[in-house]
Write a protein that binds this DNA or RNA. Sequence first.
DNA 1: GTCGATGCAAATGTTTTGCAGAGAG
DNA 2: CTCTCTGCAAAACATTTGCATCGAC
Lengths: 145, 145
Amino acid sequence: MKSPQEVFADYLAGKNLKTTPQRRLILDTLLKQGGHLSSEELYAKVKKRDSSIGQATVYRTLKLLNESGLIEPLDFADGVTRYEPSYGEEHHDHLICERCGNNIEILDKTIENRQEELAKEHGFTLVRHKMYLYGVCPECRKKKG
Amino acid sequence: MKSPQEVFADYLAGKNLKTTPQRRLILDTLLKQGGHLSSEELYAKVKKRDSSIGQATVYRTLKLLNESGLIEPLDFADGVTRYEPSYGEEHHDHLICERCGNNIEILDKTIENRQEELAKEHGFTLVRHKMYLYGVCPECRKKKG
DNA sequence: GTCGATGCAAATGTTTTGCAGAGAG
DNA sequence: CTCTCTGCAAAACATTTGCATCGAC
């Protein structure tokens, strides 16, 4: 299996785009960090390693990484788009606590299968899906309510 | 069952807020229109009936309507938040065509039940969920690819 | 060298907020 | 009468874009 770095380089090369130090640094930081970073948060982290980097480059690179299939945008309904590394990772959805923002990755074959069937029943070819479960986690429930 | 207008009036009264002509007009327009309106689109429709109304009032009222449980925000991943009337309506999810933007409302008990179970398995109390299936509709598939 | 990439600042698009006057309870 | 509401314009956000310069290939 190719490394994410290779995948990115190949994607760029295939579109006559260039592999620059900034792009490498951004991918590298994102992979090391993992998790669910917003562009802003990623920018801050990247800036620590190269203070001359610009915000726009981070946004532009995130777009490329998404197109190359290396990362996935997430929407936790708080106004910012977050990203998570998705290359080589099994797909999963998110269970989010509405009180503390904590979130757990979930995966359920029953649901995945039904989604595929449902799309088919309507004649659709399913490309991707997003599922977010919002609730209250055990810790927050104990605290109040 | 209470009418949406009553629900809204009760919600406002309960918070010592006021039932104004603007708020009534916005709710009324939204209900008559149904569907998946963005704030911008709703503002345009409302303005036809009362040209003196302001954008901000529409945003503020949408927030109140959401809190009162009358409408539901939707995210079709196109940068704008849309709203749909949800009071007295059975919950449903959305199957969206990535090419033409057309979308179909779907509901599946198997999935709904599994979601509830999944949350429970992690100790969460499920409050709500969002599921979007993105694909290509039959018409668009015929046209190309 | 050439053409894409970068950093900066300005622009964009959506949503929020401050404020002074208007109006519901 | 008292607070909340409204419209307006300005502000606040996240994100995108134009441009001159820089640098990967």
